[in-house]
Design a binder for these strands. Sequence first.
DNA 1: GATGAATGAGCTTTCATTCAT
DNA 2: CATGAATGAAAGCTCATTCAT
Lengths: 201, 201, 201, 201
Amino acid sequence: MARAAKSKAAAVTSRRDEIIEVAAQVIAERGIKGATVRDIGQAAGILSGSLYYHFDSKEQIVLELLLPSIEEQYERSLAIRAQAVSPTAALTELIRTSVHETAKHPNQAVILRNEARTFRDVEALAPVAELRAKTVALYVEVVNAGRKSGEFRSDIDVDIVVRAMFDGLLGAARWFTGPRRRKPEQVAAALVDLYVHSLQP
Amino acid sequence: MARAAKSKAAAVTSRRDEIIEVAAQVIAERGIKGATVRDIGQAAGILSGSLYYHFDSKEQIVLELLLPSIEEQYERSLAIRAQAVSPTAALTELIRTSVHETAKHPNQAVILRNEARTFRDVEALAPVAELRAKTVALYVEVVNAGRKSGEFRSDIDVDIVVRAMFDGLLGAARWFTGPRRRKPEQVAAALVDLYVHSLQP
Amino acid sequence: MARAAKSKAAAVTSRRDEIIEVAAQVIAERGIKGATVRDIGQAAGILSGSLYYHFDSKEQIVLELLLPSIEEQYERSLAIRAQAVSPTAALTELIRTSVHETAKHPNQAVILRNEARTFRDVEALAPVAELRAKTVALYVEVVNAGRKSGEFRSDIDVDIVVRAMFDGLLGAARWFTGPRRRKPEQVAAALVDLYVHSLQP
Amino acid sequence: MARAAKSKAAAVTSRRDEIIEVAAQVIAERGIKGATVRDIGQAAGILSGSLYYHFDSKEQIVLELLLPSIEEQYERSLAIRAQAVSPTAALTELIRTSVHETAKHPNQAVILRNEARTFRDVEALAPVAELRAKTVALYVEVVNAGRKSGEFRSDIDVDIVVRAMFDGLLGAARWFTGPRRRKPEQVAAALVDLYVHSLQP
DNA sequence: GATGAATGAGCTTTCATTCAT
DNA sequence: CATGAATGAAAGCTCATTCAT
């Protein structure tokens, strides 16, 4: 009976989570506008109308599929900055964590990369846009700290550099899907090297 | 009369080009799927149906709006590689040109960045996808040449570095639209510095 | 100058008639609804808008293209009935004339056959429907006369027989267009034989 | 309860079939091009968009509405030819069956008569055109058999006669719709008499 | 007489969403 | 929980028609 209860509880969350996982894949492939609720339903093995038993709207599915992973990422980033012994160590760890997170949730990363405009325009997805902005701001702060401490070059345009870095990180999902795969460590190492090296005097 | 003839000649190409320019802006703002032909028509000051006097389909508008600028960019890239005195000079010039091109056609750049998936999936837009792939390949070749010549570090994953670089360049449109603008030279300099520096031993 | 005037006069009617002839072909091929004014214009070598210099509407083109030939046919039918020495001779001549007329204007015949419904429904084309009805009535009268005179069998349902005959005649255009052509005399003979023979005791 | 189950089972096929039946009527009245999906939806009591829950396209509706009845007719024709004791008997039965089938599905017959061109031109409707051609061919074979056996006159142009016959049969729907109705037996008898009589020496 | 550009109504189709069963 | 059927709004596109040049 403990077993039954457990599997029941598991199943309860599972159905929603299953749908979310499947939706992430479909939406990563076709975009938010391009992925229809029929597509999502079909991939989940139910009719599109049945999705509305689990979710209030398509937007809500998108939100629930993105929010946990970027919240987690943002909180980890906060922790990293708080605990890091130096800006260099902080940035290194931020990049590394970002890449590993992307490897774990490549579909979410793809959506995040491609639909920034949607997050700005669709009311319901504002939290996503907001967390993204906060994450970028955090990167900027770390780089600025490095400039002050002398670890990073001072003759750089921080905004431009950080945005370019961010764009590079957002594209990393490419290495964890489809053909030409890489190991997360490999990608993380390459990007840490690229960006940290470029900031050093 | 020379003047009249001239303005007449200008008007001949003008209507189509006007529409294309306006469409680029609308589509950059809302995406290919998100921008309706009604939106485009309204921005151009005509009814959506009237667009079909000038173009066969929405897809054709997208194609005509993208193809010239990426063709130009690709051909310039070929010329740069052919004429550059060294891989370092070549890469520097590639980045600089890319940024300036982006500054000249920011809407096209935004679309190019956000809709890569669409180019792959929509038959009619295949030429765009193809040119993009060829441009990436050209960057890879230049970086590889630099590694062989010893100008660039040999301990890098070229694919990862070039893709990250490309992602950074594709995002540059952000600095030429909306608020927080930068001068093209400034952005070009920052990105040249970022990427070339990171490749040097 | 007589020549010039003549060729001018000829040209004046010619343009309209040219268009009508070309329209007949296009409409026979694609139907009244299916043939667009663009199609017609293109076949005539002008833009669709230019058709409206010559005609008030698409409907008017259809009307002008059909009316002359069915008016002529109706009047000939009247004359035949008036002059014929017997119902058998009359029917024979009606069928023969109908086939030859069809051979001369196969496109009109095709339209007449396929769009009877349109003539009923479209106000402007009412004259066509009316003339058709009158022609059918004339056939009925001739057959009835033959029954009274004893030349034709009296044990037939005149309405049914005449309609079937008419359907057969309307389909004759098939032998004067496309592949598998026949000579008008051949078709006329075959149909005279078929229908007259079937009416004889 | 048996009753409930039955009506349920009936309802299962019912919705699609209801729509098809209603579409047949609307399309017979206005033609394939002239009948809009809105017309069909309205006649079926739903919005046009809802039709697409049941069918993929308007073309599919047309196909499903025609195919069963002409398939049935073709197969019956095959059976008749196989079982008939003589060409005369075969032709008699072919005509009789055709008329009764037309009486049962007058809307389909009207469409079949008026839209032959459409079946040729619209890819999706090719099966209809094909079956029609095969049916005509079958009639030709039967008449040819009769000529060889001496039952039918040998001095006729078989193609012309059979086509005229076919045109007459296709028009028979007129007697089963609107005013001036006839009983199927009456029409069948009249047409059998007309065509068989005309073929006999 | 003809063109080029546009209108406006209407077309087929798509899609997020709702709801009785 | 899920289905089957529908809604209603909106999408891309077509087409007869108009009109200044």
